[in-house]
Amino acid sequence: MPYTSRDFGADILVEIDNGYDTVRIARWAFQNYHRPDLSNEDLKDKILQVAVMEEGPEFELSEDALKQFALQLIRSDPR
């Protein structure tokens, strides 16, 4: 079963619940980019949007913005 936008969005919310740390979450996201069950190029781009937060404050999303991003991913998946 492929890794979906809904899966990634739900996983982001879990990671935020574990403590909002942009570097930790960015590194976690980058690990997901290499999942063998990830083939959706649009989702890969979304994952990189989170992974790039590690590159500096200009790329960071606030906790609220990241939650909204995750909820949009969940809503966008018609499953």
Rank of each mutant, 00 (worst) to 15 (best):
D37F: 12
G56E: 12
F59W: 11
M1H: 14
D37A: 13
E54P: 02
L13W: 01
I12D: 15
L66V: 09
R75I: 00
Y20H: 07
I47S: 00
F69R: 06
Y3N: 01
D7V: 00
E15T: 06
G9N: 03
F59H: 15
L66T: 05
P2S: 06
E58F: 01
K46S: 07
Q49K: 09
I16Q: 07
S5P: 08
V23A: 11
G56T: 07
M1W: 12
R75V: 02
F8P: 04
L13R: 06
T4P: 11
F59T: 04
A70V: 06
D37W: 08
R6I: 08
A65C: 06
R75C: 04
V50A: 11
L61M: 15
V52F: 01
N40D: 15
Q49M: 08
L71E: 11
P78F: 10
A65Q: 08
E58T: 04
F59I: 00
L73D: 09
E55V: 03
I16R: 02
I12C: 10
D45P: 03
I16E: 10
F8C: 05
D11H: 13
E15I: 05
T22D: 13
E15P: 07
Q31H: 11
I47M: 00
T4Y: 08
V23F: 10
Q49E: 11
E41C: 02
Y3Q: 00
Y3W: 00
Q31N: 13
D45Q: 11
I12N: 12
F30K: 14
D45W: 10
Q31C: 06
A29K: 13
I25E: 01
Q68E: 14
N40C: 07
E63F: 09
I74R: 04
I12G: 14
A10S: 13
A70Y: 07
N32Y: 10
M1K: 14
M1P: 13
F8L: 07
Q68H: 14
A70D: 05
V50D: 09
G56M: 05
L13G: 08
D42P: 02
P2H: 04
A70F: 05
